[in-house]
Write a protein that binds this DNA or RNA. Structure first.
Length: 368
RNA sequence: GGAGAGUUGGCUGAGCGGUCAAAAGCAGCAGACUGUAAAUCUGCCGGGCCACGCCCUACGGAGGUUCGAAUCCUCCACUCUCCA
């Protein structure tokens, strides 16, 4: 069995309706992958998550390396067994932590030395160690170890960073053993010539899929869209395309229209915990006083267990009182909303109506 | 009956002559969140305005001292602690 199967079933403009095949099931694309950094989609049990139906989730190498540690996960049979998840898992390589933990890391050609954000202890991550950890976790899709540069760096700096990512991409590939698929990551910041160069390099290597990294790191929405719309069409058509860390519902629509197949983002889960809920009628800040006596469902067009069982008034009550159930209800809804959105997108592509689907979705977003 | 302590903005609670419309926390009201150091962070939070400054009303009540009082003095009201 190949490490990863990918077939394109249908196209609508640049948008692709496809199917990924992994050892842990098939994945209909375009797909949104809920983020479960610490082998947990925050606030949900595996059972609750499974009921929502995602076909793939994302874990994080850096976090799991620190705790509980790869030795333990390996000893307990890999991360699928550890978290009792029998569907697909993709791991981020720790590349994003090169960016997000920049204040407590030291970057070298060889790799990155992190001071643990938990206890300050030193840890080293390189293409080889990252790939090794991901393999030992037994994930379905591993990511190359990259440097995700901060927004605002110069063309020169972005170029150097990109070249490092390219060298690391080759090393990641060379270090790969085992059954996990491996995706390369295109960098280059906001500079089109660099993005083009990065695509050429990454696409020339033997990755099972290609990701666009280094977006949504502080640049404006228009810059992000410009880079995405420029880069996506340059990617080889036959491989799955993954836009890392994105995004809002609107971003997903734009990404799919640009030909992206895979997305992940903390937004539905984090925003849920912070009381910002996505609905078919627009965003609901559930803590707002206006919902205090609102007996209606969070989203009248949603069939998730939150929307079919409790009122906005109750959700607000739970949230303002810091009840744990607020996080559960909110996360169930937001994840469900994202998965429903992707389902709708897939159907729309299948019927060549992505454009009207997008228009219809966005026009409803202001109805609150 | 005696001795002492206290009364500050919705609450708790700093302040003990000017830099005080009054610290801090909570509550309240908004906003943000994009490969998760996030159940986090930010702003507003007496009233008013022709608002990056000005004017009112304010630290239990009433007087007083002072150029100036939440801060000092007097009386009153209330609360609490200890001793009988």
């Amino acid at each position: 069995m190949p490490r990863l199967g990918f077939e394109i079933l249908h196209t609508d403009g640049a948008a692709r309706r496809g199917r990924l095949t992994t050892r842990h099931g098939t994945i209909e694309t375009p797909v949104f992958m809920p983020v479960g950094t610490l082998a947990s989609v925050k606030s949900l049990t595996t059972g609750q998550l499974k009921a929502l139906g995602p076909e793939i989730i994302l874990n994080n190498t850096y976090h799991l390396m620190l705790r509980p540690g790869i030795e333990l996960i390996e000893k307990l049979g890999g991360t699928h067994a550890f978290q009792s998840w029998d569907r697909a898992i993709l791991t981020d390589s720790g590349g994003f932590q090169v960016f997000s933990l920049s204040s407590i890391r030291k970057l070298r050609e060889e790799g990155v030395e992190f001071r643990s954000h938990i206890d300050g202890s030193s840890h080293f991550l390189s293409p080889e160690t990252s790939i090794d950890i991901q393999r030992r976790m037994g994930v379905d899709i591993a990511m190359a170890f990259d440097e995700c540069p901060a927004y605002g760096i110069s063309h020169d700096e972005a170029g150097k960073s990109m070249e490092l990512t390219h060298r690391w991409a080759r090393r990641s590939l060379a270090a790969r053993t085992g059954a996990s698929a491996l995706f390369g990551i295109v960098q280059g910041g906001i500079y089109k010539d660099l993005r083009k160069r990065s695509v050429e390099e990454i696409a020339s290597l033997d990755f099972e899929g290609i990701a666009i990294g280094g977006v949504a790191v502080g640049e404006s929405k228009s810059e992000m869209l410009e880079i995405m719309n420029y880069t996506a069409p340059l990617l080889p058509a036959e491989k799955p395309r993954y836009l890392m860390g994105v995004g809002t519902p609107e971003d997903l629509l734009d990404g799919v229209a640009a030909g992206i197949d895979m997305f992940d983002c903390v937004m539905p889960t984090r925003n849920a915990r912070n009381g910002s809920l996505f609905t078919s009628l627009g965003k609901v800040a559930i803590k707002n006083a206006k919902y205090a006596d609102d007996p209606g469902p969070l989203d009248p067009n949603c069939s998730c267990s939150t929307c079919t069982t409790v009122s906005r008034a109750y959700l607000r009550h739970l949230f303002v009182n810091d009840e744990i159930a607020a996080h559960v209800y909110n996360t169930i809804h937001n994840v469900s909303f994202y998965l429903d959105l992707m389902r709708g997108i897939r159907q729309a592509i299948g019927s060549n109506s992505l454009g009207s689907f997008r228009d219809s979705f966005l026009s409803q977003q202001t109805k609150l």
